[in-house]
Computed example of a mutant assay.
Amino acid sequence: MGHFGHPDETDKRVLRREFLAVRNRLTADDVRTAAGALAERALDLPELARAGTVAAYVSVGAEPGTLALLDALRARGVRVLLPALLPDNDLDWGAYDGEGSLARVRHGGRMALWEPAGERLGPDAVVSADVVLLPGLAVDARGMRLGRGGGSYDRVLARLERAGAHPALVVLLYDSEVVDRVPQEEHDRPVHAVVTPTGVRRFHRPR
């Protein structure tokens, strides 16, 4: 096969670089303003209104901000689970109990992540979530997500599938990151909704 094996992988790498370059031009104010708007829009989602447990993540750098949303969900009495990266790139989970419950963890040469400081609940804890918020760099018109390339969320999605769990899959993005098409691989599954600072876009809910 040689280098002809996966043209999509090369496409994904190039696309990731392009989307990250745009994010990196955002100011701290841009990110903060967008985070407030994202939280407002996301809180209106019926899936989040009904959710007892939400698996989420803490945004870093210029990623679309999640903390305002995490705090609002907690204030509603929702159980919020946050990921902790394992050495094999899989994700363990812990409960979010406000900003004081977070620890800054550096993984190798990568940027430091905010992870739950408390008890670890095990990788299978995500199966109990009614909604899973997935990080991403883009979503296309079919609901296919371009991830960051670490593969952690591919593991999560595979685990949900094996368990027969069907949480709502939601991605938080900036408006410019909703695009016509991203490269798709066999194992990729569409998400159900994307939330941006200006609104929500829904995709066909696969069953």
Results as ranks from 00 to 15, higher is better:
22 V>E: 09
22 V>P: 02
23 R>M: 09
23 R>P: 11
24 N>Y: 10
24 N>V: 09
25 R>T: 12
25 R>N: 03
27 T>A: 08
27 T>V: 14
28 A>I: 11
28 A>G: 13
29 D>R: 15
29 D>A: 15
30 D>L: 05
31 V>H: 02
34 A>D: 12
39 A>R: 08
39 A>Y: 00
40 E>S: 14
43 L>A: 04
44 D>Y: 00
45 L>K: 11
45 L>M: 08
46 P>C: 06
47 E>L: 11
49 A>C: 13
50 R>G: 15
50 R>V: 14
51 A>K: 09
52 G>L: 07
54 V>Y: 08
59 S>R: 03
61 G>L: 08
61 G>H: 03
62 A>S: 10
62 A>C: 14
63 E>M: 15
63 E>I: 14
64 P>E: 01
65 G>E: 02
66 T>L: 04
67 L>I: 13
67 L>E: 07
68 A>L: 11
69 L>E: 00
70 L>N: 00
71 D>W: 03
75 A>L: 02
76 R>C: 00
77 G>R: 00
77 G>T: 00
78 V>C: 02
79 R>I: 07
80 V>Y: 02
81 L>H: 09
82 L>A: 03
84 A>S: 14
84 A>Q: 09
84 A>M: 06
84 A>H: 06
86 L>E: 09
86 L>R: 07
87 P>V: 01
90 D>N: 04
90 D>T: 12
91 L>Y: 00
91 L>W: 01
91 L>A: 01
92 D>C: 01
93 W>H: 03
93 W>N: 09
93 W>I: 05
94 G>F: 07
97 D>G: 14
97 D>V: 06
98 G>P: 11
98 G>H: 03
102 L>N: 05
103 A>Q: 13
105 V>S: 12
108 G>A: 04
108 G>Y: 01
112 A>N: 03
113 L>D: 07
114 W>S: 14
117 A>W: 12
117 A>R: 14
118 G>H: 10
119 E>I: 09
120 R>W: 04
120 R>I: 03
120 R>G: 13
121 L>K: 06
122 G>E: 08
